[in-house]
């Protein structure tokens, strides 16, 4: 029983990391119409930048480094979308072509990191904080911080999308770009800002992912990308709230399966869920029809 509760605890942490990543992925897809398979590699690139900042001196906190990672994630996402995907889209390339381009970008980013860094794994210098026990869940301070951070981002994103002019313009642009332009919304600028925003989420999720993993390498996010896809497709692509829910389901199922099956196969249920969704309802289970 306690093992189960512990796994639920881990699940919540994984779900928190996944939620940040999946929401970023899903909103990015909604606005740009690109299934960006290079997303995981941008996460790792950001995690690396956080590592270098973290190693600058003994006093540099990983949480500060995370901010720098967010900036890098934002810039990298913008550059990829604006100078790679968007030109291909303007040329009228089919979605499948863009997916192949994004696979190419995945190789470029991931292995540039590996070329610089080598194949070894890295770890941040940080304290895990005090261990806390709460209702049978045992979590370290860092894990709690990750959960807290994720909750803050989800609430923040909710407020942004619902109550700010920019957030609404972003949803309007995702829903119908032509009509948004008719309303006088400068959609190019909205897309740019949305890429920066989702890129920042990507950078932060990359860093929290690396923290949660303990040690990470250039290809560490390859499997995590599939979990992101599972969460995103479960919630319906382009749906931020669906992605949150999808992340919670996939994250908890994955960690709980680590107990009941074996740790080696913990990802398998998520994959099977994704395949079933793709085959049965590719628009998502929690999808109410449009961006909510």
């Amino acid at each position: 029983m306690s093992l189960f509760l512990a796994s639920v605890g881990f699940g919540l942490v994984t779900a928190s990391v996944l939620a940040i990543a999946a929401v970023g992925f899903s909103v990015q897809f909604g606005v740009t119409d690109v299934i960006n398979l290079a997303y995981g590699s941008v996460m790792i690139a950001s995690a690396y930048v956080a590592y270098f900042v973290n190693q600058l001196g003994p006093g540099v906190s990983i949480w500060l480094a995370m901010l720098v990672a967010a900036v890098l994630g934002a810039l990298l996402s913008l550059v990829i979308n604006k100078y790679v995907y968007a030109p291909f889209q303007r040329r009228g390339m089919a979605p499948i072509g863009i997916v192949i381009v994004s696979l190419g970008m995945l190789l470029i980013i991931e292995y540039t990191i590996q070329a610089v860094q080598g194949t070894g794994n890295l770890s941040y210098t940080m304290s895990q904080g005090p261990t806390l026990t709460f209702a049978g869940l045992i979590l370290s301070g860092v894990q709690l911080a990750i959960i807290g951070l994720s909750v803050v981002f989800m609430v923040g994103l909710h407020l942004l999308l619902r109550y700010t002019r920019f957030g609404k313009a972003m949803r309007a642009t995702a829903a119908d770009r032509t009509l948004a332009r008719n309303c006088g919304i400068r959609t190019d600028r909205v897309v740019t800002l949305a890429c920066l925003l989702t890129g920042a989420l990507c950078g932060i999720s990359g860093t929290t992912f690396a923290i949660n993993l303990g040690s990470f390498g250039a290809t560490s996010a390859d499997l995590f990308l599939v979990m992101i896809l599972a969460a995103v497709f479960l919630g319906g692509p382009g749906q931020p709230y669906g992605a949150m829910l999808g992340a919670l389901v996939i994250g908890v199922i994955t960690e709980v399966s680590a107990v009941f099956i074996t740790a080696d196969y913990k990802y398998v249920p998520a994959f099977v869920i994704l395949l079933v969704i793709l085959a049965v309802r590719p628009r998502g289970i929690f999808n109410a029809g449009a961006i909510g």
Binding site: V84, P87, F88, M93, G97, I100, V101, L103, G104, M105, L106, L107, I108, I109, E110, Y111, T112, Q114, A115, T119, A218
Partner: peptide
């Protein structure tokens, strides 16, 4: 690693 990077560049470059 650079080989992989080159393959990625070739894919994107050729498609363009």
């Amino acid at each position: 690693a650079l080989q992989w990077v080159a393959i990625g560049l070739l894919i994107v470059g050729f498609l363009w």
